[in-house]
Amino acid sequence: MEFEMIIMNLLNYSGEARSYSMEAIQFAKDGEVEKAKKSIEEAEQKISLAHKFQTSLIHSEAQGEKLSISLLLIHAEDHLMNAITIKDMATEFVDLYVRMSKISNGGC
């Protein structure tokens, strides 16, 4: 696959993962826990797809292929790192909203 297309896939899947993660937080905030969990799952799937493209670049370089480090590649890697971080934080927020809901409803 063409180098630029790999980068665009990294950007696309990372952006989708971030969006699903933010959506999960909003669902949890609105008390829609199952929708929130589904959005987290979607984010994880998109991160997995992005990671496959990232791995293909790493594999190419490990085999001796000279890859150009472009601003676009750095941008794509930044998007992936942020998507992973936001997904992790969204998971924590969903758990927190679930706990808060249980406490406010008389549970522990």
Rank of each mutant, 00 (worst) to 15 (best):
E34I: 07
I58P: 02
I103M: 15
K35H: 10
T91F: 00
F53K: 06
I47A: 03
A28L: 12
A28N: 12
R99C: 10
S104D: 08
S101Q: 15
L49Y: 14
A43V: 06
S101N: 14
L71G: 04
A90V: 04
Q63F: 11
Y20R: 13
K38L: 14
H51R: 09
R99T: 04
S68F: 10
D78C: 08
F3T: 04
M100F: 12
A17R: 01
S68A: 15
A36R: 02
S19I: 05
K29N: 14
S21F: 01
E65I: 08
A76K: 04
A83I: 13
G15E: 03
K52Y: 08
D95M: 14
A76G: 05
I103T: 07
E34Y: 07
Q26D: 10
G15T: 04
E16A: 08
Q26H: 02
I103E: 14
H79S: 10
L73N: 09
G64F: 11
L71E: 13
I47E: 03
S101D: 15
M1E: 14
S60K: 15
C108W: 05
H79Y: 06
I47C: 05
Y13P: 01
S56C: 04
M22R: 11
Y97A: 02
I84W: 03
A90C: 06
E2Y: 06
K35I: 08
E77F: 03
Q45G: 08
N9G: 12
L11F: 00
A62G: 05
E16S: 10
T55S: 13
G107P: 01
L80R: 09
V94W: 03
I7E: 02
M100Q: 10
E32W: 00
L57W: 05
L49W: 04
S68T: 15
M5V: 09
L71H: 04
E77I: 09
V94I: 13
K35N: 15
F3D: 04
N12I: 13
H75R: 04
S68H: 13
T91M: 12
S19E: 00
E32A: 01
L49E: 14
A76H: 01
R99V: 02
F27V: 02
